[in-house]
Every structure is written in structure tokens, then in C-alpha cells.
């Protein structure tokens, strides 16, 4: 019976896609990693968003602390305070992290990162603690019993069912709060208005002395501002501007004229180093070509970016990058 459609999945195919892990340990591969190993990976690949101590940068998630805060007015929900199962950490880091370079970590690296996240949350206390498939299910998180099945049907629905009042339902009405007081609604009349301050900043920023011939003098503030918006898709991995450091990707200050793979202390992929040795220097043409199709332009690059489709975006990003060129 059935329709006779589809074909059998091969064991290799199932193994390639069936990566999920459950609280009982089903799906965990063999492997191991220590807190200290995890710290090194975390600093290089995760701290740019999650902070050196898992505290979260800007609006990126904090993943440590908050224990005992769940009933507070401002609860802090982290792996340590809120998540019920450690398997969720392993599964999520492995399937979706680092942001912008998913499924790039080895199983051992995921064990090490998971161990380090336990350490950040004081679940384990020693830097030489090693997490592995053998001791994984022995680790329990504090809030495992803090969850219960949806009880709206029994608790709420009976109170909210029945014929509602239609006449003289209350004696009087007062306004108690106005959204306008907070004034956090995006400007809907003109979406570009929000970007105006950024344009002013960028326009004010280029260094007055010795502009490189092809760049700063000709920069269009509107294009730079558009570039700043378009650069958001890069900013998860690349920093630019004052204080920018290498993160998942190298910093992008003074990019023009830089040889591919030349930043000290950044761990480039081998194809990238080879491209630099072969003479790849970043300029308008090479950057635009790389951004249009990174994986074909430098085959084997670790940069997991799909490529810019719009030439307008490419021009804007080039202008934005140039605004950080000395």
C-alpha cells in the first residue's frame, strides 16, 4: 500500500542529516573536550557576540549567570539559570553556531564549548574538567524541573469562556499609559530618516589628511550610510572602526591595499593564505568580485557568506569600507 513514491534513504544520508541530540543522550557522537580547550574556541569564535564571559554583547544573547532570578521583575534567562537540559546546548551549538558559520565545529570542539559554557555557569568548577559522551548525561542543569506542560486549557480557558458583558460593563474609563511617551516606534513615514544620524557620523569621520587617491575624497555620505546598513550582514563576523579586532573574521580597517591573508594573529584558511602569496591584493575590483561570490573567488575560504546579489549593495559596502581607510 501507499503511493510507492520516494526512495529509501541510505545509512550515509541519514547519518549526514540526523544530527539531533536528546536529553537522554540519543544522538550524541563519541568525543571529548575540556573547559580550557573550550575557552580558546569561545574567545576566538563566540565572544564577539556572547561576550568573553557569556554576558552577551549588545542585544546578542547572554548565556551565563542569572541563577535565582527567574521570579524577579527582570529575569535573566541563560543556560545556567533557565535551560533545562545540557543536550540542548550541544545540539544547538553543533547545528547552528557559530552564527554565520554553522556546522563548522568538530564534535570534540562542541564538547569543549559545552564544557566551557558549564564552567561559565559554575556548573563545573575546574578548567581541566573534560566533557565527553561518557559523562555527558550525568550533568544536570539547575532548572530541569522548572517547566510544566501548558495548563491554559484547565487554568485559563474556563475563566475566559462564556457570554461577555455588552452594556454598562464598567462605571468609567481612564487612560493609564500612552505609547507616545516611550517613543520607540520606528519612523514609518520615511524609513531612511533613522539612518540620517549615521550618515552624518560617517561624513564627519574620514581623516582630513592624506586621503588615498581613489577613496575618501569622493565618498558619498548617503552611499556610506547605505553601506553601513548593508554591512549588517557582515557584522556578525567582521568588526570595523575604532577598536575593531579579529573575531570570526579578520577586522576590516585599512582593507584597501591589504594582501589577502596578511593580518597577523588571524587564523586564515590555507586557500586564503595561498591567494595572498599568489598576489591577491584587496581593491575595488577584487573586493567586489569576492563579495559577489566568495566561495568561487577563493575556493575553500572559510567565509560562509552566500554572496552579494545586488551591485548597489556592493558599491555601498565598498564606500563604507573605504570610510575606514586611513
Amino acid at each position: 500500500d501507499g503511493f510507492g513514491l520516494g526512495r529509501d534513504a541510505t545509512p550515509d544520508e541519514v547519518a549526514a542529516w540526523d544530527i539531533d541530540v536528546r536529553p537522554d543522550g540519543q544522538g550524541l557522537p563519541e568525543g571529548r573536550g575540556t573547559v580550557a580547550e573550550g575557552e580558546e574556541i569561545f574567545t576566538a569564535q563566540c565572544a564577539v557576540c556572547h561576550g568573553d564571559f557569556g554576558e552577551g554583547v549588545g542585544r546578542w544573547p547572554n548565556i551565563a549567570g542569572g541563577q535565582g532570578s527567574l521570579a524577579d521583575e527582570d529575569p535573566v534567562k541563560t543556560v545556567g539559570s533557565y535551560w533545562p537540559y545540557l543536550s540542548t546546548v550541544w545540539d544547538y551549538v553543533h547545528r547552528a553556531m557559530p552564527f554565520g558559520n554553522a556546522q563548522s565545529l568538530t564534535d570534540d570542539e562542541v564538547y569543549a564549548l559545552t564544557a566551557y559554557i558549564l564552567y561559565l555557569n559554575d556548573v563545573v568548577l575546574e578548567e581541566d574538567f573534560e566533557l565527553s559522551h561518557e559523562n555527558f548525561t550525568e550533568i544536570r542543569l539547575e532548572n530541569e524541573d522548572g517547566f510544566y506542560m501548558d495548563d491554559r486549557d484547565t487554568l485559563e480557558v474556563p475563566q475566559l469562556t462564556g457570554e461577555p458583558c455588552m452594556e454598562a460593563c464598567k462605571p468609567s474609563v481612564e487612560i493609564t499609559m500612552r505609547a507616545r511617551v516611550l517613543d520607540v516606534t520606528p519612523d514609518t513615514a520615511d524609513d531612511d530618516a533613522a539612518a540620517a544620524p549615521a550618515a552624518e557620523t560617517a561624513a564627519a569621520e574620514p581623516a582630513p589628511e592624506a586621503p588615498a587617491e581613489e577613496s575618501v575624497a569622493a565618498l558619498d555620505p548617503e552611499l556610506v550610510a547605505a553601506g553601513e546598513r548593508a554591512f549588517r550582514q557582515c557584522s556578525a563576523c567582521h568588526q570595523i572602526g575604532e577598536g575593531a579586532t579579529n573575531r570570526v573574521g579578520p577586522h576590516l580597517n585599512d582593507l584597501f591595499g591589504r594582501t589577502a591573508g596578511e593580518i597577523d594573529g588571524f587564523n586564515y584558511s590555507r586557500p586564503f593564505q595561498e591567494a595572498g602569496e599568489a598576489g591577491l591584493v584587496w581593491n575595488d575590483e577584487t573586493i567586489a568580485a569576492f563579495l559577489a561570490d566568495p566561495r568561487n573567488y577563493v575556493k575553500g575560504t572559510r567565509m560562509s557568506f552566500r554572496g552579494l546579489k545586488s551591485e548597489d549593495d556592493a558599491a555601498a559596502i565598498l564606500a563604507y569600507l573605504k570610510s575606514f581607510d586611513e
Binding site: Y82, W83, P84, T88, G146, F147, D150
Partner: peptide, 23 residues
């Protein structure tokens, strides 16, 4: 599976510090 989107997120924290799941 108790994955991220049904533990860390998409669970409803109640005033007593416990949370509804599978809402």
C-alpha cells in the same frame, strides 16, 4: 527533543519563576 526553540525560547515564564512549555 527539548531543543532550543522549545526550552530557551517559546516557553512562557510565570511569576513564580517556573515556566509553561509546549504552549
Amino acid at each position: 527533543w527539548h531543543h532550543r526553540e522549545e526550552t530557551s525560547a517559546y516557553t512562557d515564564l510565570m511569576p513564580d519563576g517556573r515556566a509553561r512549555r509546549f504552549t
